[in-house]
Computed example of a mutant assay.
Amino acid sequence: MVNIPHPRVAFGDLPDQFKTDADEVKLPRKILARLLDLYISSWDFDEDWYLTTYPDIAAAVSSNGFPSGWAHFRAVGYLEGRLGSRPIVDSEWYIETYPDVAEAMLDGKVASAAEHFENFGYAEGRLPSKPGVDAQWYARRYMRARQSVEEKQAHDDFVRRGYRELALPAPPR
């Protein structure tokens, strides 16, 4: 079992704020930073790719503005919309799922699905490849389904809505 600190230890009085019906809670920057760090820390990160892709960050690291690309990504890079590693784009799935990208490729606006994802798709909330949705688990958890759901239904819901709402496509390992 993973040791998870008590909510009051990690977040102070934040849990009490969730006991109300208020639409907003006051979240100190320090706690938001911890939550984002926890979220970001489980992602793939490639230091060499990051520094090569973002020469301004390589310069900041060289001049001791940040101890590493990873430190930059965790502190501000993600919030700036930067990628932590080269995405693996399944071109066939991507253009089938997003037909407008196929059209843009035919019109010569982008050269490939990978180029589209890196330059536009990531910021637009698109996925680079099929997410591997566990249909029954996902449907029970996020679609409030009481009966069996077709794999395509759960997949489409995740691609359209769930991903943007930080839903998990399948149970964590």
Rank of each mutant, 00 (worst) to 15 (best):
V2K: 10
V2G: 08
N3D: 13
P7M: 00
F11A: 14
Q17T: 10
K19D: 10
D23M: 04
E24Q: 14
R29D: 13
I31W: 02
L36N: 08
L38W: 01
L38P: 03
W43G: 11
D46Y: 08
Y50N: 10
T52C: 06
A58K: 11
A59W: 04
S62Y: 00
G65E: 12
G65A: 10
G65K: 08
P67W: 00
G69M: 00
F73P: 15
L79W: 02
G84I: 08
I88V: 15
S91N: 01
E92Q: 07
E92C: 05
Y94W: 13
I95G: 05
E96W: 01
T97W: 02
P99G: 01
D100F: 04
V101P: 09
M105K: 08
D107K: 14
D107I: 10
G108I: 06
G108C: 06
V110C: 14
A111F: 03
H116M: 05
N119L: 10
F120L: 14
Y122K: 13
A123K: 12
G125Q: 01
G125C: 02
G125N: 00
L127P: 15
S129Y: 00
G132Y: 02
D134M: 05
A135Q: 05
W137A: 15
Y138H: 09
Y138E: 06
R140N: 13
Y142V: 13
R144S: 13
R144D: 13
A145M: 06
V149C: 03
E150I: 04
E151I: 05
Q153P: 03
H155V: 15
D156T: 09
F158P: 06
R164T: 09
L168Y: 09
P172K: 00
